[in-house]
């Protein structure tokens, strides 16, 4: 080992049956300084987030642009290094790992990206693209790799497989491309998959197919998912539990139906109300919130949502609410909900 490189201490969590335990996760991005010696400024993309994902669970992370949901996804698969906090993957903290140590875990966690038009290599055929991770991890003989590739493509719903193997991305439709991305994630037999807006770029008429495919894979392989989406309807269809994020914090977390049918946090209430529901008879009433989301640089003191909250009182500016259990399993970060005032 090179001298001077500090090897992070290997931390292990007791086995609790969870695939992932995220504890106090933070990611601050340093901004470009306007002057050489000025104090650095940070954007707090993820600011102290704690949650767990159980075996075979689909965990939805929901929020608006800039709330930090994608950053969490990238941290979890360690495309980014966290500023602080732990990511226990099957009991081992991978937050500080690097290089070969990390590679051992990488295979177990895969990511599906939002844009199927940008996430495939235009110069590789489908079979080359899907077999690449197997080569990377040296999983089996060439024959075994070929078998795995075929199986993954078939499981991703690209049938008959032979027709797809030698195609290039430009010869595929959006839905087919996303299925190729799914096959590539699937082929290394991961323990969980982070799906970042897996259907938002797809045509409406084929979204349901991709969502059903992902849920079917869960049944078949028993992997867990983190589903990142801005679309609560999608999260509702796919996820077992979900967390609503606002400016880098989780403001509410519970089982999905609980959040949708009985939202507690004022932000979640507004968010749920704003979701279009394909009902021509719905009355449009004003939302219970004001203003626009502040930039991540101008974070309000105390509760991050208070500047837009219609219920905000003095305490909201003074003290930051913590995410506490309000009813069984239903967590909410709001002083007023905690006290039972709203």
């Amino acid at each position: 080992m090179l001298s001077g490189v500090i090897r992070p201490q290997r931390r292990v969590l007791e086995m609790n049956g969870n695939v992932l335990d995220i504890v106090g996760l933070k990611k601050y991005f340093e901004l470009k300084k306007d002057r050489l010696f000025s104090k650095p400024k940070y954007v707090r993309a993820v600011d102290g987030v704690t949650f767990s994902v159980g075996e075979r669970e689909v965990f939805g992370l929901v929020g608006e642009t800039g709330c930090g949901k994608t950053t969490i996804g990238r941290l979890v698969v360690r495309l980014e290094r966290p500023t602080e906090g732990s990511i226990f993957f099957q009991g081992t903290d991978i937050a500080g790992l690097a290089g070969g140590e990390l590679k051992k875990f990488r295979r177990k966690m895969q990511m599906i990206f939002q844009d199927p038009y940008a996430s495939l290599n235009p110069r590789m055929t489908v079979s080359q693209w899907v077999v690449e991770p197997l080569r990377n991890y040296q999983m089996g003989t060439p024959e075994e790799m070929a078998d795995r590739t075929l199986k993954a493509l078939e499981d991703a719903g690209l049938r008959p497989v032979e027709e797809y193997l030698e195609r290039f991305p430009h010869e595929l439709s959006g839905g087919e491309r996303q299925r190729v991305s799914i096959a590539r994630a699937l082929v290394v037999d991961p323990a969980f998959i982070v799906a970042d807006e897996p259907v938002s770029m797809l045509d409406v008429s084929i979204r349901a197919g991709v969502m059903q495919l992902l849920l079917g894979l869960r049944e078949k392989y028993g992997m867990a998912f983190i589903l990142i989406t801005h679309d609560i309807s999608v999260a509702r269809y796919m996820s077992d539990r979900m967390a609503v994020m606002y400016l880098g914090k989780i403001v509410e977390m519970a089982d999905t139906e609980g959040v949708i049918k009985e939202p507690l946090h004022p932000y979640t209430r507004a968010l749920i109300k704003a979701v279009p529901v394909a009902d021509p008879t719905r009355e449009r009433t004003p939302l219970p919130l004001t203003g626009e989301m502040p930039s991540a640089l101008e974070r309000p003191s105390g509760c991050v949502f208070r500047t837009r909250c219609v219920y905000a009182t003095d305490i909201c500016a003074e003290r930051e609410p913590s995410l506490v259990e309000v009813k069984d399993g239903h967590m909410c970060a709001c002083h007023l909900v905690e006290r039972g005032e709203i």
Partner: peptide, 13 residues
Amino acid sequence: GLLNSIPTIKGDK
């Protein structure tokens, strides 16, 4: 088909 392909938060799951 279009109406059947959109998820919604309305109604029961």
